[in-house]
């Protein structure tokens, strides 16, 4: 989207990458506010179910592991596109997207279980804060999966070559950011009692 005939930028950095990093900076405040709210409301729920009654650490550890691994797949996809390996790019992009889908599957499982145990978004402030926080994270993962699948399709059609590695790199920045947000959520929401 940058101006093709514009002379080199003042910093030598690509506009898209710089703009995207700024966006990620802004996103830290978005998730920061959501996480603060969860922390503020810790212990404020008037009726159950309470967090320790429903949060399933073993299952979430597995989904966390899957998401971390997908980040690894993502850097390998970038590595492949920078080397000009179309097969490698396609493989790792798909692997990343599948990791994301598995994570979303775990989240769907988790949400359904919670609802069965009586915790909906309307039950208490814990439910409200939990579903809105993890829901927005899940929405970010979903957007990421669509983005990765689009890139994979383009790669399969031969439209992503070495000169387009920036497109993969930016998708990767997004993916890793969604991953680090989960690292924080997993610790603050699941592990800290």
């Amino acid at each position: 989207m940058e101006i093709a005939h514009h002379p080199p930028t003042a910093t030598g950095l690509d506009n898209r990458k710089l703009g995207f990093w700024t966006f990620i900076g802004s996103e830290t405040l978005f998730f920061g506010s959501l996480i603060s709210t969860y922390m503020v409301y810790k212990g404020a729920a008037v009726t159950g179910p309470y967090p320790h009654e429903v949060l399933n650490i073993p299952v979430t550890s597995v989904s966390t592991f899957v998401l971390l691994t997908s980040s690894l797949a993502m850097v390998l996809a970038l590595n492949a596109v920078q080397r000009g390996s179309r097969a490698g790019t396609l493989t790792w992009l798909l692997a990343t997207a599948i990791g994301g889908l598995i994570f979303l599957g775990f989240q769907a499982y988790e949400f359904t279980t919670f609802v069965h145990e009586g915790l909906t978004i309307q039950t208490n402030v814990f439910g409200s804060a939990f579903y809105v926080l993890t829901g927005f994270h899940g929405a970010h993962v979903s957007v990421g999966v669509l983005w990765l699948l689009t890139l994979a399709a383009l790669t399969a059609m031969g439209k992503i070559g070495r000169e387009d590695s920036l497109k993969v790199e930016i998708a990767g920045l997004y993916w890793h950011f969604v991953d680090v947000v989960w690292i924080v959520i997993f610790t603050l929401i699941y592990l800290i009692p």
């Binding site: 709210t37 503020v40 409301y41 404020a44 729920a45 009726t47 309307q122 208490n124 402030v125 809105v132």
Partner: peptide
Amino acid sequence: ATNFFVPGAGGDPVL
């Protein structure tokens, strides 16, 4: 119908 600012359900308008 969430409870972020509903005092009776533990929500806090001061937030």
